[in-house]
Design a protein around this nucleic acid. Sequence first.
DNA 1: GTCTATACTTGGATAGAC
DNA 2: GTCTATCCAAGTATAGAC
Lengths: 218, 218
Amino acid sequence: MMAKSGPPSKVASGGSERSANTRRSLIDAAIETLKENGFSGASARAIAERAGLNQGLVFYHFGSVSNLLLAALDAVSEDRMIRFNAAIENVSSPNDLMDVAAQIYREDLDTGHVTVLVEMIAGASSTPGLGAEVATRIVPWFAFTKDAIDKTFGDSPFASLLPADDVAYTIVALFLGLEMLTHLDGDRERVLTIFGRAQQLVTMLGAFNAFAPPKETS
Amino acid sequence: MMAKSGPPSKVASGGSERSANTRRSLIDAAIETLKENGFSGASARAIAERAGLNQGLVFYHFGSVSNLLLAALDAVSEDRMIRFNAAIENVSSPNDLMDVAAQIYREDLDTGHVTVLVEMIAGASSTPGLGAEVATRIVPWFAFTKDAIDKTFGDSPFASLLPADDVAYTIVALFLGLEMLTHLDGDRERVLTIFGRAQQLVTMLGAFNAFAPPKETS
DNA sequence: GTCTATACTTGGATAGAC
DNA sequence: GTCTATCCAAGTATAGAC
């Protein structure tokens, strides 16, 4: 039987290596373009130029600019989830979690991965149907955050008052908002000091309620 | 002496009433377009069409699309500041403030005013110089939030641990993030219950620390 | 002074080349 | 199957009409 025709399917199965390389280049360029020029600057031409490829390839490989941007969001999400899961692997106390949260925030600022998410959310209202696609792709971020909270604050007296999924929703919102503001004013340090204060607060409340007995890091 | 020529100045002084009306129509249409179609959908054509005006008027009255969008942001900010200041007029306790915060959030969801801000922040990276302009226009939001915190939490024991301006920065970020997520998933109720829980928490910590003696609303 | 008709540029999408 | 040349729509901006 012969190889099938038409544009390559979303799944990478069977596509030639050349095709896969082109797709990967476009996705990488899309991520960079979203970070530097935002959603409204992420045109097929701008992305293809950055990748050194013909802009028509965007439509051949992904069908539309929106689909390419969603593929870029998928790539970023996957990358982040692997990193996040590794980061909370050995975390058990609220204090550990605060350390990890600050570390992750610092990384996100450097890599600009949250910027991609922010731009996609903000840009979603421009194209019918895009919002739903983006919404689907955020679910893992909520799930991850909720797990991290359960893992560390699960037996705290606050747990009954504050359902983990509502807290997770709030934390994700806070990350997005802080990313936006930091991106705008360029004041990295401010948010890092805010994380420091939050950590003090957690420590204080922990000692107060005796749900997080002081223990040395590691 | 004769009336001066050229495009009308930014300040409304001296401009004819007709000019002022046109400008106002364009600004209103720009706000609506930002809310419904986002930054990337807010083109001169889309805005002018919504206003029932020729798209060339955008450039005559504002010089560029970016300038019109900034004027729209100014209008929204001014409107919100008036409302905010009225809202905290008679507020003194943390509990009152939480009530007002929830009320303001509800209004913002209805009017979509925060959406305008979010879209402008996210869209700022597309055009050189726009970010700085937007940043300037957020300053009053921080200032307002800080004042509200000082007014209600100023004599709380937390005040020394958490500087009001850092808290204000965080609260603004949280509002922006919650707006984004709510806009995306359409789940109004979720955030309102979150506000409810936050209020419980404030009450609890207040009683705990005896800085907010229970008092009936009004 | 205000606005419209027109010029030019960029973007999305595809027909056809390899 | 992969990619490029080309087409048409949408965007910004201005020259010129009123």
